[in-house]
Write a protein that binds this DNA or RNA. Structure first.
Lengths: 337, 337
DNA sequence: TTGTAGGCGTTATCAG
DNA sequence: CTGATAACGCCTACAA
C-alpha cells in the first residue's frame, strides 16, 4: 500500500476547523464566491495556505457534476498518431487554447485491446466534453455520443453532411491553389501524389488538384496514391516517372509524401525546381529545411486545434457556437517550385 | 425525489432496482468480485447492458481513493514540446504501455499562465501517479512531490545523483559509438554540433563525443552549439565550416540538427558522405528519408516511454521496482557516413 | 452469498 | 453573510 506520509491530504473540513468557520464558508472562498466578508475570506485563505490545502477533484466533480476536463480522442493506433506531425500540431493548438483555462486535457488513443474503453471513459462522467480527431472514415463513429456529451470533430465526416460541430480546413481550395501555382510557373505536364481515398483530406485534395488542372486546360491522368508517409510518396513518384518521364509539376497531398517525391526525383536525376516543380501540403516543420525548401500549402493545424478547443469549451459552458468552421489555407512559396 | 429514467446517466442504484438486488451486489459484479452467484451476476449483467450503465469515475474514485489515471507532465511550453519528435515517441510509448490496462493518460503541458495548475492537479487527487519528462534543468523541480505521489522521471537530473525513479538513455555511450563510427570510416578532422549545456542529453552527448575523439587521438576543438532545432544545426555547421574548412566528420547531438547540417553542407558545396561524414542521434522518423539517409544513433524513445509507464504502474500498485533504468542505444548506419 | 449502513470530500439548498 | 444539512454515486466493512 502507498502510505502518504504526514497523515493524508488536508480536507476542506480541516481547513474549516483551522479557520474556525464552517465548511460551506471555506467552499465559498475556494470558489471565489462574492458573498463572503473580506476579513473572513482572509482568515480562510491563510488557513488554506498553512495547511497547503488543495481541493479534491473527484469530490468536487461528484458534487458539482462537472469535471473541468476535456478529452482528445484519436481513433488511431498510437503508432499512426505520432507518426504524423499534423496530429502534433493539433494537440499543440488544443493545449495552448486550454492553458489559460482551468480545463485539463486527457488524451485517449484508441486502444486496439479494448475499443470500448474510450466509450466507457466518456460516458463515465470523466470529462465535460470531447474533441475527436482522425483522418479516417471511422471519424464520426462517435457521433451518436454527441447526444450525451458535447463533442467537436476535427475534419468533416467522409459521407458529406452532418449536423455535428466540426472544424475543418479548406482542403479543396488549398489543393487548387497549390496546383494553380504550378500552372503559373509554366508547368504543363502535371501529376499528383494523392492521399488515401478513405480519408476526407485525401479525397478533397485530389479534387482540388483535378479542378484546378482542368480549369487550366491540362490533363489529370497522372494520379498515384500514397498513404501520407514519406516512403509512400517516394514510391508514388517512381511510378509516376515510369508512366510519364516528361512530368514537370507535382502536387503532393502532404509534405511527407512531397519529401519522398524529392528523394525519388533526385534518384532519377531530375533537378528540382529546374526540371520539375514540387508543391506539398501542410507546411509541417520539415518543409522549410527540406532540400530544396518545399513550396507548400500551409494548413493552420495549430489554429484548428485551438478552434476546436474554443468551440468545445463554449459548448460546455452553454454559449452559442456555429456548427461548422472552415479554416482557410495559405500558399507558401519556397525553392521547390 | 428520485428520477426514474430518461434524465441523465443511469446509476448503480437504478441498475440494482432493475435487477432486483442491492447496490452492493451490483457493485460487486461491476468490480468482478468472485463472491457473487453466477445466476445473480447474470441478471445484473443484463440489467447493466439494458440500461447501458457506466460507473461514474468521480464517485468511484472518491469512495475507493484511487483514480486509475496517470499524468504525463511536460515542463515545457506546448510549442517546444510538439516541435520535438522525441516527445512524440515518448508519449507513444507511454500510450502503448497503458493501452492494455485500465489506466488513463492525462497530459499536462506546463502552462506559462498558471505554473501552479499542475501542482494543484497532481495534489488534488486526480491521478494515482505521474510521469515527468523534460530535456531541461527544471526537470526535477517536481521531485519533492515524490513524497506525496508516485513519480517517475524521464532523463536524469542535471545535477548528478538523485534518489528518484528514473528511466534514461545511455547518451554518453551512444554519442561515443557514433563518434567511433566516424573514426572507423577514416575521418580525422572531427567536429560536433552539440546541444544546450543546460540539458543532460546535451552535456552527455558532448562528453561522449569528446571521450571517443580523444581516445582515437583526435582533436576536440571543433564544437559549436545548437538548440536541437534544424535551423540551429544549419547555423552551427556554417560556423564550423568557417572555422575549419577541412572538416571531414560531423557528429550532431540530434537528428534535427544533423538535418540542418546536411543543408548547410550542401550549400557549401560539400558532398556527403564523399567529403564529409555525418552522424546524428535519435533516429527520428525523418532520418531514414533524409538526403542522404542519415547514419544515426538510435534512441529507444518508444521503449523509454513504455518503461516509464511500466515502472509507474508497478509503483502505484506497490510492486517493487528498480530506482534507475538505463536503456542502451544502437548505431544505425545509412548513407551519410 | 447478499444486504445494510456509513462514509469518501465537495457543493448546493435552505434557514438564520 | 454564514452555517446546518442534504445530496452526489459508489465502495466496503459488518451483519445476516
Amino acid at each position: 500500500m502507498t502510505a502518504i506520509s504526514g497523515g493524508g491530504a488536508p480536507t476542506l473540513e480541516m481547513v474549516a476547523a483551522h479557520a474556525g468557520v464552517s465548511r460551506a464558508t471555506v467552499s465559498r472562498v475556494v470558489n471565489g464566491s462574492p458573498k463572503v466578508s473580506p476579513d473572513v475570506a482572509e482568515v480562510v485563505q491563510r488557513a488554506i495556505e498553512e495547511l497547503n490545502y488543495v481541493p479534491n477533484r473527484a469530490a468536487r466533480s461528484l458534487a458539482s457534476r462537472r469535471t473541468q476536463a476535456i478529452a482528445l480522442i484519436v481513433p488511431e493506433s498510437a503508432a499512426r498518431v505520432f507518426d504524423d506531425p499534423f496530429f502534433a500540431s493539433i494537440v499543440q493548438g488544443v493545449a495552448m487554447a486550454i492553458a489559460p483555462t482551468e480545463y485539463t486535457l486527457t488524451m485517449m488513443i484508441e486502444s486496439e485491446v479494448d475499443p470500448d474503453k474510450t466509450r466507457r471513459y466518456l460516458l463515465g462522467g470523466n470529462v465535460d466534453g470531447a474533441l475527436v480527431v482522425s483522418h479516417h472514415t471511422g471519424d464520426h463513429s462517435y457521433a451518436h455520443l454527441g447526444r450525451s456529451l458535447p463533442l467537436v470533430f476535427g475534419g468533416r465526416p467522409l459521407d458529406g453532411e452532418s449536423s455535428e460541430f466540426t472544424v475543418d480546413v479548406d482542403n479543396t481550395h488549398g489543393a487548387a491553389s497549390g496546383t494553380e501555382h504550378l500552372v503559373a510557373r509554366g508547368r504543363r505536364r502535371l501529376a499528383t501524389i494523392a492521399g488515401p481515398q478513405d480519408m476526407p483530406p485525401g479525397v478533397d485534395r485530389l479534387r482540388g488538384f483535378e479542378s484546378a488542372a482542368s480549369a487550366a486546360g491540362l490533363a489529370t491522368d497522372l494520379v498515384e496514391f500514397g498513404d501520407f508517409s514519406p516512403a509512400s510518396g517516394a514510391d508514388a513518384m517512381r511510378r509516376l516517372l515510369a508512366r510519364e518521364p516528361g512530368i514537370d509539376g507535382v502536387f503532393a497531398a502532404n509534405d511527407q509524401m512531397a519529401m519522398g517525391a524529392l528523394t525519388a526525383l533526385a534518384e532519377a536525376g531530375r533537378s528540382v525546381p529546374d526540371d520539375v516543380s514540387v508543391v506539398g501540403f501542410d507546411d509541417d516543420r520539415y518543409a522549410a529545411t527540406a532540400m530544396p525548401a518545399l513550396t507548400t500549402v500551409r494548413q493552420p493545424s495549430n489554429r484548428m486545434g485551438a478552434e476546436m478547443a474554443r468551440k468545445l469549451v463554449a459548448l460546455i459552458e452553454g454559449r452559442p457556437v456555429e456548427a461548422a468552421t472552415i479554416l482557410s489555407t495559405e500558399l507558401v512559396v519556397r525553392a521547390s517550385s
